[in-house]
């Protein structure tokens, strides 16, 4: 008697979830198909593989100094990631292992900075970078992003699981505090580092507003800025734009598929 109702609900569930999954994936399919079509066909909504892939790729590589642009993006993202992880893990470890009332107060004050919107920082930061003569440099892009309250928070939360017996044993063996951190904490916490790496790398690779303000010459621009300017041309060549978006999305897509567990763990870092 209950079967028709159950069948109907199953159809409804699968229909809804399937539709959502389809809508989520569709733009990716459209992007890949788009790269094989001419700009006019893309704008006309053609949804089949075309023959313009080679032409689009060739046009992309003539219009864009691709090796330089990707080098810029990689440089900014890797610098930001390595420095953020180093500074934040030191702080997360410090806050958790060496507790004091004053540091606890500062930690809480630091968490408040999570609410500061970037829009309220960009003008002073821009003036600061101008005064320091850093406009149009990658240092200016990376520098303000290294101190991240969120990543410090993430490391501190994860450090709770770090066995303090390890630290005590190392102290008995005569290791200095920095040696304990470097030789014991870092290797033990590598999955935390992996998850944090993914968050910071993605954010840095995809960062847009701040680089848009600071990077003004074509020699320093990152892939995100290049795609944006390709697409905002009066008559954008969508075939070329599609090639660009594919190339810009590939690194983060690869990270996602090869490190899916850490990826999700990183995203969830804050709720435990």
């Amino acid at each position: 008697m209950k079967n028709p109702a159950r069948a109907a609900s199953a159809v409804l569930t699968y229909g809804f979830v399937g539709l959502m999954a389809f809508l989520s994936i569709f733009p990716f399919i459209w992007m890949v198909l788009g790269a094989t079509n001419s700009s006019i066909d893309i704008i006309k909504g053609r949804l089949a593989p075309g023959e313009a892939l080679a032409a689009n790729v060739a046009k992309f590589f003539t219009q864009v100094n691709a090796p330089l642009v990707f080098w810029n993006s990689a440089k900014v993202a890797i610098l930001a990631t390595v420095l953020t992880l180093a500074v934040s893990s030191l702080a997360g470890y410090g806050f958790e292992m060496f507790r004091s009332r004053r540091r606890e107060g500062l930690y809480r004050a630091m968490l408040l900075t999570l609410m500061i919107p970037f829009a309220a920082l960009m003008i002073p930061l821009f003036i600061m970078m101008g005064k320091a003569g850093l406009i149009n440099t990658h240092v200016a892009v990376v520098l303000p992003t290294i101190g991240s309250a969120f990543i410090v928070f993430y490391f501190r939360q994860s450090t709770e699981a770090f066995p303090s017996e390890l630290r005590d044993a190392a102290k008995v063996d005569g290791l200095k505090e920095w040696q304990i951190f470097l030789y014991i904490y870092v290797p033990v916490m590598r999955s935390t580092y992996a998850a944090a790496f993914i968050i910071v790398f993605m954010t840095a690779w995809n960062n847009y507003l701040w680089p848009l303000i600071v990077l003004q010459s074509n020699e320093t621009k990152t892939i995100t800025l290049v795609i944006s300017s390709l697409a905002s041309a009066y008559y954008p060549d969508y075939g070329v734009v599609m090639v660009g978006t594919i190339l810009a999305t590939l690194p983060t897509l690869a990270v996602f598929f090869f490190m899916q567990r850490q990826f999700v763990q990183g995203m969830l870092g804050s709720v435990k």
Binding site: A91, G94, R103, T113, L121, P124, G147
Partner: peptide
Amino acid sequence: DVNGWLFVAPALSLIALFMVYPILWS
């Protein structure tokens, strides 16, 4: 205590310089 401060100092000074100072400035 000194060790505690050494570990947290880099992150705190960067946050102070690039978050707290600009937000007060604006």
